[in-house]
Design a binder for these strands. Structure first.
Lengths: 157, 157
DNA sequence: TATTGTTATACTCTATAACTATA
DNA sequence: TATAGTTATAGAGTATAACAATA
């Protein structure tokens, strides 16, 4: 197929990681679609689940989303009744972005989608292979100095 | 950090694959930039290296790029003197897209960038771990029914 | 009538800068 | 003077449809 000395793309670790990664990201977007949640709103909901009542600036810094873009994300979540902009106790300029009851109820469903996707993707692996893969991916991620839990796609927009 | 029962994102195989995959794809774009080559033009050059003189329609089907978008890709490569539109021997409607001498000379450089990236990404792994990872990724890719060598990002545009 | 390549248009998304209100 | 949030605008990138030439 390819010329002499040119390695096939599907034998390249970076290509496979990129191919799988983009496919998985797209698939996850599709899974979230029925819940009216996108990658950015999902990330905000998860950040609030970990630490509720953060300001938009805190969320921006934590998730790598620009503060201008964060406005539309919170608008969207507020329109869907999943979060509320409450007055910030320490700073009258800022809002305390807070999960509503509806937002909180949605979290287990979103988490279930993540688990379902993981099961599907690793269906062709044994439990042991799954553990090995997880370790190798974590090693690479740490070796590249990537921030745990911060997705590059979010920072782009 | 997260609520009870909610697994951290960096312990999820799909998240890690997506995080690494998108990062790697972005990094590869940066590596190709000095050569004036983007992901789509790169894909076309590789396809021509494997099989020169394909029509735009053949390239479209093989790479998952829409035929309308393919026009701009070939325009770009032609402007840079890397390929030429020659008359197709079998069909007067079609062009035989052909590598020029300059395009052919560029291939080893592009391949070297891929190798360099692979070395960098797997720097924190042993040779054995690298082999294991490659096998696991190929298993997953095949298990998901993905076409070898076809990158989902290309089909999006 | 179907297909190859092309062009034009509209649509989405993103990035940048400028504005307000508080600190 | 600096910061939190907002808004508006321009730019890039993408998708869709319609077109001319040939099969």
């Amino acid at each position: 197929m390819t010329g002499p000395g040119i390695v096939e793309l599907h034998q390249r670790i970076p290509f496979l990681l990129s191919q799988l990664g983009v496919h998985i990201a797209d698939d996850f977007v599709t899974r979230l679609l029925p819940y009216g949640v996108g990658p950015r709103t999902y990330a905000v909901l998860m950040a609030l689940a970990a630490d509720d009542g953060q300001s938009q600036r805190q969320l921006s810094q934590r998730l790598g989303i620009h503060r201008n873009a964060m406005v539309a994300v919170i608008d969207d979540l507020e329109d869907k009744g999943l979060v509320a902009r409450r007055p910030h106790p320490d700073d009258r300029r800022a809002f305390a972005v807070t999960l509503t009851a509806g937002g909180r109820e949605l979290l287990p469903d979103l988490d279930a989608q993540g688990r379902a996707q993981e099961d599907e993707i690793t269906a062709s692996l044994t439990a042991q292979e799954r553990a090995v893969l997880l370790g190798l991916l974590q090693t690479i991620s740490a070796g590249l100095g990537m921030s745990p839990g911060v997705h590059p796609k979010l920072a782009e927009g």
